[in-house]
Nucleic acid binder design. Structure first.
Lengths: 209, 209
DNA sequence: AAATTAATGTTGCATTTGCAACATTTTACA
DNA sequence: TGTAAAATGTTGCAAATGCAACATTAATTT
């Protein structure tokens, strides 16, 4: 995953962060950080660790809207976090750097020649996130649980370039990601195994068609 | 919707387009333009008209991945259009401007003082698109057709700031957008009417709760 | 204005799915 | 390392959904 400070020297990163008035905060695991991010026009960089945006349904269902790992970014400018039902939880110990969005084009910063690199990195990050969203939408629009599972496996397989790969998340998380009932998904995977489409050993998936 | 050339004078827009080697193409209605966009690292601006990205399922189902209107942008850097099953169709007569992505930071362009405005516009466009995607994901992850419909209506209502509003698309398109069977959605809307949650007169929706 | 095409409304039926309620296994952590 | 918590597997059942096949209405095109 792209990094906002890629190809910028340590010295210049420090300078950049100072010019941007960047604010770095450390969080413990399983902490709700949304209270900290409920303000306008900022971006938040996940320096290390990971966070999950979870939608809490009125009848107790939880849906993972998205999961962001080290190097990724979010912000209410970007995520449009409006509903109170959405919480942002750290999955592990996590460090986050906050930057006011308007600072990104402030007078001082544009004098530096690393600015172009920074902007390129930022645009790359945004387009990567768009790609991530598009991929998920493509899965979510599949008509059946079976099609969602198969499409997900196909994607993973293509990403890894092999028909054998390890699931990067738990089945419980996958069910959330695909927005289907976990037990129904488990049942469907059983059928797929029985019908010889896939093999499953723990997190190891083998596509057989 | 934001525009890539907002707050830039006509004169400078022309200059910008020249420096970017922008290439403008006009299309008739219902034309498949994907063949033109199947190359690396470009962005495409919808100057006028609109296009739809449609996923053609192996068993004949069509799903609208996204619809882009005047002022919006796409590109394989952004949309990650890889599958051959996806086509991009003009919904009406449409004009599109293509820009090579690498040109965005070329040597000549960064000398101009309208460059910062351009970059701000670009980032705004990207974050707007991310917001659009996030909104759709939030709808798609709803467990039931009923919840999807209600969430969609609630969103539209909030956007317009009133409990009475006109649907900006047909019900057929809405079914695609929410990725549910059209007739099943029609049935569910009937139930919602019967139970007094909503009123429907043609495209005019009234939320009654 | 007539004709063609697209959109909408409806309903029976088979299938899929969510839900609940478990037992079992794996993982995390005190 | 022992215990608590999380993940996984399974299944019956009711409800939701997709599908197909229509009739009807609205919109577009010529």
């Amino acid at each position: 995953m792209a990094n906002l400070f890629e190809n910028i020297s340590e010295k210049n990163i420090l300078k950049l962060k100072r010019i941007l008035s960047a604010n770095t905060v450390k969080y413990k695991k399983n902490v709700n950080i949304l209270s900290n991010v409920n303000q306008d026009n900022f971006i938040a960089l996940v320096d290390s660790g990971s966070v999950q945006f979870i939608f809490n349904d009125y009848d107790g269902n939880k849906t993972i809207i998205e999961e962001l790992n080290s190097g990724e970014m979010f912000g209410n400018l970007i995520s449009n976090i409006t509903s109170e039902e959405i919480t942002c939880i750290t999955k592990e110990d996590t460090q986050i750097t906050y930057i006011e969005f308007d600072e990104i084009t402030n007078d001082e910063i544009i004098k530096n020649d690393f600015y172009i690199i920074f902007i390129k990195n930022l645009i790359k990050l945004l387009t990567d996130q768009l790609t991530t969203r598009n991929n998920r939408i493509e899965l979510l629009t599949k008509r059946s649980t079976r099609d969602k599972i198969l499409a997900y496996f196909k994607n993973e397989s293509q990403k890894k370039g092999t028909k054998k790969f390890n699931m990067p998340m738990t089945f419980t998380e996958l069910a959330n990601y695909l927005s289907v009932d976990r037990s129904a998904m488990s049942r469907e995977i059983k059928y797929l195994k029985e019908e010889g489409f896939i093999e499953v050993n723990g997190k190891r998936i083998t596509i057989k068609y």
